[in-house]
Amino acid sequence: MKALISAIFVAAALGSALPASAAGDHGHGAMPMAAATDGMSEGMVKKVDAAKGKITIKHGPLKNLGMPGMTMVFKAASMDMLKKVKPGDTVHFVAEDVGGTLTVTQLESAQ
């Protein structure tokens, strides 16, 4: 029992000793992004292709999909959401797997 308690304390001490920057490393060349509210992710619009109904977003981790930060092309759930943003805009969004296609189902300007 004493060994178990000691192991728990050692693990807790090691976990708190990690540098703060280790938690913020997103890999894949992604820019660090603050967590958005209400389960939304944050990203920057890189391209809007209204003709194809697609949007390219450089984003932080997509926790609901278990994906790290990267730049991706998503299908837009509606054409109206594409009219509200332009390249360079910071956005909060929700991406979901809809029938095997990664789709932005909610999109708001972060400005």
Rank of each mutant, 00 (worst) to 15 (best):
P19S: 14
H92T: 04
V73W: 11
K75C: 07
A11C: 11
M40R: 07
A36P: 06
T37Q: 06
G60Q: 02
A95Q: 04
A35V: 07
D49G: 04
G43E: 04
T71F: 01
A50P: 07
L65A: 12
F93E: 03
E108W: 01
G88C: 11
F93K: 08
K86G: 04
L62S: 00
L62M: 07
I8K: 09
M44I: 14
S109Q: 03
Q106S: 08
M1G: 14
H26M: 15
D49A: 11
L18F: 09
K52N: 10
H92W: 12
D97N: 10
M79S: 15
A50V: 11
A20K: 11
S16R: 09
A22V: 12
G100A: 08
G99S: 08
V10I: 14
A77Q: 01
A11V: 05
A22Y: 13
M40N: 01
V98R: 10
M81T: 11
D49N: 08
L82E: 07
P87W: 02
G53I: 06
M40Q: 04
T103D: 02
A50N: 12
G24E: 03
A13H: 00
I5R: 15
G66Y: 06
I5K: 14
L18T: 09
V85W: 04
N64A: 07
Q111W: 12
L107R: 03
K84L: 06
M81A: 05
A13M: 13
K46P: 03
M44Y: 03
H26W: 12
F9A: 14
M67V: 09
G43K: 04
A95Y: 08
K46N: 12
A30W: 00
K63A: 08
G43I: 04
A77P: 00
K58E: 15
L102W: 09
A13F: 13
I5D: 10
H26G: 12
V104M: 07
A76Y: 08
M44Q: 15
M79D: 15
G69F: 02
M31R: 14
S21G: 05
L65G: 01
V73K: 09
T71H: 06
A95I: 00
M72P: 09
A17L: 10
S78I: 03
F93S: 00
V45I: 06
G66M: 03
A110Y: 00
A7S: 15
H28G: 04
K84M: 10
K63Q: 08
K2V: 14
K46M: 13
M79H: 15
L14Y: 11
A17D: 07
F74R: 05
